[in-house]
Write a protein that binds this DNA or RNA. Structure first.
Lengths: 152, 152
DNA sequence: ACAAATTATATCGCACGCGATATAATTAAA
DNA sequence: TTTAATTATATCGCGTGCGATATAATTTGT
C-alpha cells in the first residue's frame, strides 16, 4: 500500500544509514583511541602527519574535508597533549608548519593496532569493502570537483 | 614502495570516507532544511513521527540509532518550534507520547521536496545506491544484533 | 610603491553525539 | 508489602563540525 509520502520514509533514505553508520564507527573507535589519548578526529589528523611528516593547516583541511574552524582547535588540543608542534618552515620562514614531536612519532607504533582491530569489528567481505570504498570516493571526488570549480 | 605503516594511511581506510561523506551530506542538507527551520537530526526525528503518527522517546532512539542524551534536547527544540507535543498516552495515561502539532503535520508537505533535491545532488546510479544501501544496513543490523544480545 | 584583493588562520556561537551520571517511575522479588 | 532491580527520561560536560565573521599576511594591480 503506497502513499504519496513514501519518499519521506526513513527506510527509503540513503543518507540516513550513512549518518547512522558514521556515528556507529566513531563509537567503535572510541575504546581503541582512548588508549592513545586521541579522539577520532584527532586520530585522522595524526594519520596525515604520520604519512606526510609535516603539513600546514590548509593541507590538513583539504585532506580531511574539514574547515579551519574545526581543525584549528584540534591542533591546539594535539599541541597541549604534546603530540605536535607549530613552527616556522625552515625553507620558508614565513610559513607555519605543523610537525610531530617525539611523542607524536612514538604514538605511531601504538596506533598500528587500531586499523587492525577495526577491520575485525567491521565484518565486510573484501568485495563489499571495495565496493563501498569506490562509491564513497565517487561521492567525495564529485564534491571536490564542484568546490574546486567554485573557487575560481 | 610499501612500508610497515601502510595500514595507517588515510587512503587505506574505509571509515574515513564514510565519515567524510556523512559530513558532506549534512552540509548538503543544510540549505534545504533551513527552509523548514529544521536541522538534519531534527528532520529525521520528524520523519519517524510523520510515518508513525506518534512515538515515545525510546522508539525514536532506536529508530535513529541515537541515545536519549541526544534525543531529549532535540525534542525540546522541536517543541519550542511548535512542531511536536508531549502528552499522556490516551490508552495508557502513565506513558509519555510525542505527537505532531498541526504545524508539524503541515510541514510534511513542504518536506516532500527535500528527498527529491537530495537525490539530484547525489549522482549515484540505481545500482550504486542499492549496493551502498545493502552494505550500510548490513553494518547497522550487525551492530543492532550485538547490542540486542548485550542487553539480556 | 601602495591600495585592493586574495589567502591562511583564528574566533564566536550554535547544534549535535555521547559517556557518565542522576532521577523518577515501574516492575520484580523476598 | 517493602525493598531491590529495571526502565525511561533527563542533566552535565566535553569534543566536534560548521556558518559567519575577524584578523593578519601575502599577492596583485596600477
Amino acid at each position: 500500500m503506497s502513499n504519496q509520502y513514501e519518499s519521506l520514509q526513513l527506510k527509503n533514505q540513503i543518507c540516513f544509514p550513512l549518518y547512522a553508520v558514521s556515528n556507529m564507527i566513531t563509537r567503535k573507535y572510541k575504546p581503541l583511541l582512548d588508549e592513545l589519548d586521541l579522539t577520532y578526529t584527532q586520530y585522522i589528523v595524526m594519520m596525515v602527519l604520520w604519512e606526510q611528516g609535516q603539513a600546514n593547516e590548509k593541507l590538513l583541511c583539504e585532506a580531511l574535508c574539514l574547515k579551519s574552524n574545526t581543525v584549528t582547535p584540534l591542533l591546539k588540543k594535539l599541541r597541549d597533549k604534546g603530540y605536535i608542534e607549530k613552527s616556522k618552515d625552515k625553507d620558508d620562514e614565513r610559513n607555519l608548519v605543523i610537525t610531530l614531536t617525539k611523542a607524536g612519532e612514538t604514538l605511531r607504533d601504538k596506533a598500528l593496532r587500531v586499523p587492525e582491530c577495526m577491520a575485525k569489528e567491521l565484518h565486510l567481505t573484501p568485495d563489499e569493502a571495495a565496493e563501498l570504498y569506490k562509491i564513497l570516493y565517487k561521492l567525495l571526488d564529485e564534491e571536490k570537483s564542484i568546490n574546486g570549480g567554485k573557487q575560481k
